[in-house]
Design a protein around this nucleic acid. Structure first.
Lengths: 235, 235
DNA sequence: GTAATAGTGTCTCTGAGACAATATGAT
DNA sequence: ATCATATTGTCTCAGAGACACTATTAC
């Protein structure tokens, strides 16, 4: 039941973040969820979000996003963030008519989580086998779809890898995001294109994978930008 | 000045439509504007929009879009509509903190306009040489950018042409949207692809352009869908 | 040496860019 | 026939798919 001391409101506009991360141990994509403290759905795992109407804390929607990112609900640096869409209806929140503007975010670093935070498998949340309150499953599905479609024609998946990575790591993140094998020659050619365009630079350093020949690394010269390729991978 | 009898609200969430059309006489893209009746900016030309919070008329955001489309502010059938984004800040509306979820829409038919409606040149509005109230110029610029980027890899511009059109008409709408010449062979190959994919069918009919050989027409078999090509035009 | 993986070379195929050559209507 | 434009054909080029081949480390 809603807290009876809370003011009744007839409209809510929230922002919700889908913060994605590569779990290097299991080679799986994960999404950050928060255990809700307040009703409705207190105790359930849900997307980190805040209400943007009804207060004057933020001057812009982007300020609100930054406030959420900086709060304990997220509390980590983001390598990438983009708005995916806005949904709204009379049913998604039991309290009242509500809208949500939701975002795709990617974190590349390993981070310390709070007690109330946990990374869950993205696939399970996107396909609904891990059930979330509100319509959060469908928001995650939309974000996942955006990620997959952008992986076909942009360098977005490299955001998961941080500032320095190797070609084999790039191959595996693209395969993981697209959920199918990707030819290493295609990825190498794309990395070459990005190097020519001064998005990447060879470091001369090497890292070792598991056995076999060490991997040369490149560094990201434009950490905040994605490169757009002029062709798609075939589907 | 705001109407003093209107209730004061501390937050507004609106939807705004950028309804685009091809003016066949001048071969220019146009955008539908409304002369505002209410303050603020009464008498100014602005995007058609409605407030979605503070009422229970609509069950979903899409219902609200349909209500706006069906109202006298728009009042015409739309061949295409897609959400482009949501902006919000404390300054864009002089009344209060406000957000706008805005859409790209395309109308293919010629329509009768109301007294308060008029189509303006899209380019002038998008580049700010035709000034609109609120931040409507930047919304139009974002919609224009979406249209141009989608023209590189999808059949979206064909939505301007209606259910039956010719290859030369397709060439000219792509050239117009991209603001540069487009090879007719490229367009023909794309139309061929769409025909193979059962998005188009040759009608056997012909129409006459201005002089010269008549143009064969094709009909759109999936009027509500855009076809996605697997390569982009070069930029 | 062998195992295992990294990195290179080469071939095919699709579709865009460019432009020449031919077809079909109006006058 | 001439004009103007539509339509087809041919060539080049870039980049993805596929896969063979060579290189470099650990052991």
């Amino acid at each position: 039941m809603p807290n009876p001391t809370a003011p009744t409101r007839d409209y809510l506009h929230t922002i919700d973040l889908c913060v994605l991360r590569l779990c290097r141990e299991t080679q799986a994509l994960k999404i950050l969820l928060n255990r809700r403290e307040a009703e409705p759905f207190a105790g359930h795992w849900a997307l980190p979000g805040i209400v943007v109407n009804g207060g004057v804390e933020d001057l812009t929607l982007n300020d609100a996003v930054e406030r959420l990112r900086n709060s304990s609900k997220v509390g980590m640096p983001l390598a990438w963030i983009e708005q995916v869409g806005t949904v709204g209806d009379a049913f998604r929140d039991p309290r009242c008519w509500s809208s949500s503007t939701f975002y795709l975010a990617i974190v590349s670093d390993a981070v310390q989580l709070g007690e109330h935070q946990e990374f869950f498998p993205l696939i399970g949340v996107a396909d609904g086998s891990i059930k979330l309150p509100f319509d959060h499953n469908s928001l995650v599905a939309a974000v996942h779809e955006r990620l997959v479609s952008k992986a076909l024609y942009s360098s977005l998946p490299l955001m998961f890898l941080g500032p320095e990575f190797s070609a084999p790591q790039a191959v595996s993140i693209f395969s993981l995001v697209l959920n199918r094998p990707v030819l290493k020659t295609s990825i190498r050619q794309r990395l070459l294109k990005m190097t020519e365009a001064r998005y990447l630079r060879e470091t001369g350093r090497k890292i070792s994978g598991d056995g076999g020949r060490p991997q040369s690394t490149v560094e990201n010269l434009k950490p905040g930008s994605v490169y757009l390729f002029d062709r798609c991978f075939m589907e």
